[in-house]
């Protein structure tokens, strides 16, 4: 439950909108797109890599670290866990199930 996954912000809504109470980002996870709140990462913006947990960006990451994280996420937690989180993990490899 405490696993967070890195993705790249491709759009931000609510920025500069007086009525918006919260900035929301569209975050791309290797092809899957999920909406995430930026309330915990107020400085994050389009193009940044963020670590997302349960619909909230927890921190900003370097691109190299984020991509490396994706490499191990596929093997360390497995495709089924990522699928449960609504994130495609690419073709399942070596899962055996």
């Amino acid at each position: 439950m405490c696993l967070a996954v890195p993705g790249r912000i491709v759009a931000v809504s609510g920025a500069g909108d007086e009525a918006a109470v919260e900035r929301l980002a569209t975050v791309d996870f290797q092809g899957s797109r999920v909406e995430a709140s930026l309330v915990m990462t107020p400085a994050a913006d389009v193009g940044d890599w963020v670590l997302v947990h349960a619909g909230f960006a927890l921190t900003v990451l370097d691109e190299a670290d984020a991509l490396e994280t994706w490499d191990y996420l596929r093997q360390a937690v497995g495709a089924e866990t990522l699928a449960e989180m609504g994130l495609a993990a690419g073709p399942a490899e070596g899962g055996g199930t």
């Binding site: 439950m1 405490c2 967070a4 919260e22 709140s37 947990h53 619909g55 909230f56």
Partner: peptide, 8 residues
């Protein structure tokens, strides 16, 4: 990890 999400 999840508590701030509930708070928000």
């Amino acid at each position: 990890t999840t508590a701030p999400a509930t708070a928000a």
